[in-house]
């Protein structure tokens, strides 16, 4: 009980702090929605003559963008900058003894931080979907939804570990912002966030199945749209689990190396 309460407190404080970023959160979100609307309008212009592009009907394309963005705001996080700040300003020193308590602490803190952005983002995404109800494809096959939920949950955890790992770069350099921005863009591309990977040669589709990034956008929507079957989804979940284990292992490795460097500097 006490443990839960402690973690809830961390969450709550982070949440309050996040609210004071009112304008930042709002402006950022509006920008994102704007970009999404631009994409939708662009596809509308392309589909204005009707037809199907690479197996996507107009409605499917709209659903791809809307649902993909919704899933993306659910699974994403800003952990990297938190971790790098902790490393840079020495906050990490309190956690020097063991690696996992820091990881756990930071995960809970992050869950709190994303709550605001999360609420903003999810609600606004749902509103946009509501606005486009006419084009949004509804699919309620229970087995598919269960698999979808599993993929999203795993993608959420994968993203946290990924961000944590990227955040550890700060052990070696303080100049991390540019690196993060670049990684984010690469991730977004392979996740299919700019446009469906299927538009590119098949090798890209394969890569996006094997890499962890696609599970935050492209793969779950493919499942929802019925472009991949439940068996493929099951295989995908296995790939996700494999990545989780791998990332966890890499984090351990990188953490231990980084900590040695960190202690060496003696902050």
């Amino acid at each position: 009980m006490g443990v839960i309460k402690k973690h809830l407190t961390i969450t709550k404080i982070a949440w309050q702090r996040a609210l004071t970023y009112r304008f930042t959160v709002l402006a950022h979100r509006l920008g994102e929605l704007g970009e999404m609307l631009v994409l939708i309008l662009m596809w509308a212009a392309i589909y204005s003559g009707g037809g199907v592009i690479k197996g996507y009907s107009y409605r499917e394309m709209i659903t791809y963008i809307l649902l993909g963005n919704l899933i993306n705001v659910v699974v994403r996080n800003w952990l990297s900058s938190v971790v790098s700040r902790d490393i840079a300003d020495g906050t990490l020193s309190q956690f020097l003894v063991k690696p996992m308590p820091y990881l756990r602490y930071i995960l809970f803190r992050e869950v709190g931080r994303i709550s605001v952005a999360f609420a903003f983002s999810v609600v606004s995404s749902l509103l946009v979907i509501f606005f486009f109800t006419r084009y949004f494809i509804i699919n309620t096959a229970p087995l598919m939804l269960a698999a979808l939920a599993a993929i999203i949950l795993l993608a959420f955890v994968t993203e946290l570990l990924l961000s944590f790992l990227v955040g550890l770069i700060a052990f070696w350099t303080t100049e991390v912002d540019g690196i993060y921005a670049t990684i984010d863009r690469l991730k977004k591309f392979f996740a299919g966030g700019y446009f469906p990977i299927s538009l590119l040669p098949p090798v890209f589709v394969k890569a996006s199945f094997l890499l962890p990034f696609g599970y935050s956008f492209f793969v779950p929507v493919q499942l929802y749209l019925g472009k991949i079957g439940i068996e493929t989804a099951a295989l995908g979940i296995l790939i996700q689990l494999f990545w989780l284990a791998l990332l966890y292992g890499i984090i351990q490795l990188v953490w231990n190396r980084g900590i040695k460097k960190y202690e060496g500097v003696g902050i």
Binding site: K12, W15, Q16, L19
Partner: peptide, 10 residues
Amino acid sequence: PGFIQSLKGL
């Protein structure tokens, strides 16, 4: 200070 207040501050 406080959550409700910062919400109002919006």
